[in-house]
Amino acid sequence: MMIKLNLNGKSVSADVAEDSLLIDFLREHGCYSVKRGCETSNCGLCTVFLDGKPVLSCSLLTVRADGKTVHTLEGLQKEAEEFGAFIARQGAEQCGFCNPGMIMNAIAMFRENPDPTDEEILEYLAGNLCRCSGYEGQLRGIRAFLDYKKSKGETAICNM
């Protein structure tokens, strides 16, 4: 069926199969940051924003995005670079395959809760699995980013 959506700020019209999954649609449209890690909604790698809210694109039919706005990391490069550098300074990006999904969800968290405690961070990102880092370096990076934002008098909210 024909759908129309706004993908990373651009209007996209496409004829999609009823059973097309959003993750496949997005990769077909050049959004290679979106990764598939599990097929069972466990790993968080495929996290994207649907109308500004984080969703798992492996578990969403593409047709559900009809008339909506979708953001992937390709559309949030400035935020990814700014926040990602703090992860990178810890060496916590490691293989990098889970990074885009985790960073999308972290950006969502900063928007909802610009000043989270460690516990709130762990809770919010619990659905983003990482097999390399043991998570500690990611937490250090997030803390350092939040401290940096605070020191600059900025909130950690990333504008869309």
Binding site: Y32, S33, K35, T72, L73, E74, Q77, A80, E81, F83, G84, A85, I87, A88, G91, E93, C95, G96, F97, N99, P100, I103
Partner: peptide
């Protein structure tokens, strides 16, 4: 690192 955290197509 920066290519990875910004989700560049490298895999």
């Amino acid at each position: 690192a920066m290519a990875l955290v910004t989700g560049q197509p490298v895999f």
